[in-house]
Design a protein around this nucleic acid. Structure first.
Lengths: 224, 224
DNA sequence: CATTATTTTTAGACAAGTTTAAATTTTTAT
DNA sequence: ATAAAAATTTAAACTTGTCTAAAAATAATG
């Protein structure tokens, strides 16, 4: 059983969260430079912090080889993800925020320290399984269902699918989706694909229009 | 019109809040030592911070004379008080916390930065006027109704009153009140007062019992 | 008033997290 | 395989907020 006598600082929590998300999308060790870009800081700062995290057994680190989360590090990262996503649900479902407005506020709320708070919030929200962007919410014990990562861009001509999540949660992307009436649960049919730029002609809500490859690579879908 | 180009740090916000509450209960300038005790830090640290706050026009400060909030400082302090109390209402009314459990969590939540969040929370909670301890909640524009500060200890024998707030919000005091079935809105009649220690024999919920002066000095009441 | 006692401020130091600039290691490309 | 490029680490310094210890100012006491 892994124990934790110490409190993580907000900065440490942010590093763990970033490493976690980079590990998921990259599978191999997370490099100093990648982490620096994600954290909007300098590589040298990252090196310093990584050493601190390694001292606390939150990451495995070997000089010049990048980092990966230990079990303890992953446990902590998932806790923060859980908090972030539950707060996003709160903001959208209870305070009527739009899905493009909640990320920044949740970035702050995810660091609130309280043993009971997040489980009470979970109950209050009636145990949601996904956040407003379709990302799965880890349960109390840290179990999390992972996306099968089927992107709209990999769907064949003539096939239909349903939007189940977004990869990019930036405000600009989400606003584009709003304007196109694409939301979680939207049904999409692929009418054709341009050889030139892989842009897709799709049909959604009985309207046909074209979306760029950049867009279709950022939409998680389930075939239907 | 007072402008604010800068963001306050969490520490600065806590100093402002402490100065604000000490100003209310003491009327004159807040001394370095008082502030150090309230902030659980050393007088030398307080002196340093006070200078920073004075540089930002948040407090008026003269060496050896203590501090007082400027209008800008008070505006900011009241904003934090508003956030703190609204979050307390949320925790008690929505997440079913007891009134003795919410202070510490609200201490963290009050520092969340978002222009819209607190007003949306206010609306969601249906514009409450008082927090779970009976303290008034400042409105959007910073207006706050002040207690007339009538303590139970100043009520005469034979008179009746209603509990409208607590001065001490410590968990131990609030738990004592819970055990005595005293809550906001409870009616209390003074049956007698001991000359020796000013303890009171009171009647509440048709039960008679004795409370110490320490207790009666910490209950805000309204004569009835 | 003079002398203690208390309060407040200053000076120097520390920890966390950051930065810049230089040095080192690894990777890439000829 | 070796030189150039890119990535990574180290070293020194800065910022914020803190502390200890000592100095200075104010308040309290006889």
């Amino acid at each position: 059983m892994l124990s934790m006598e110490f409190q993580l600082t907000q900065t440490e929590e942010n590093y763990l969260k970033s490493i976690y998300s980079l590990e998921i999308s990259n599978s191999k060790n997370v490099s100093t430079t990648m982490l620096a870009k994600k954290m909007k800081t300098k590589a040298s700062s990252v090196t310093d912090m990584i050493k601190k995290l390694a001292d606390k057994d939150l990451v495995d680190y070997e000089k010049y080889k990048g980092v990966s989360l230990t079990n303890l590090g992953k446990t902590n990262a998932v806790k923060i993800v859980r908090k972030h996503r539950l707060w996003e649900v709160f903001l959208v479902n209870k305070l009527d925020y739009n899905w493009d407005e909640v990320h920044e506020i949740a970035e702050q709320l995810e660091h609130i320290k309280s043993i009971s708070l997040i489980d009470r919030l979970d109950k209050y929200l009636e145990f949601p399984t996904h956040d407003p962007h379709g990302d799965p919410i880890p349960d109390k014990d840290g179990n999390i269902e992972h996306h099968k990562n089927v992107m709209l861009s990999s769907i064949q001509i003539g096939d239909s699918c349903v939007v189940i999540g977004v990869k990019d949660s930036s405000s600009s992307f989400l606003k584009f989706l709003d304007n196109s009436n694409i939301r979680l649960g939207s049904a999409i049919k692929i009418n054709s694909i341009e050889d030139f730029d892989n842009s897709m002609n799709i049909e959604s809500n009985n309207i046909s229009f074209s979306i760029s490859n950049q867009i279709s690579k950022n939409l998680f879908v389930k075939k239907s």
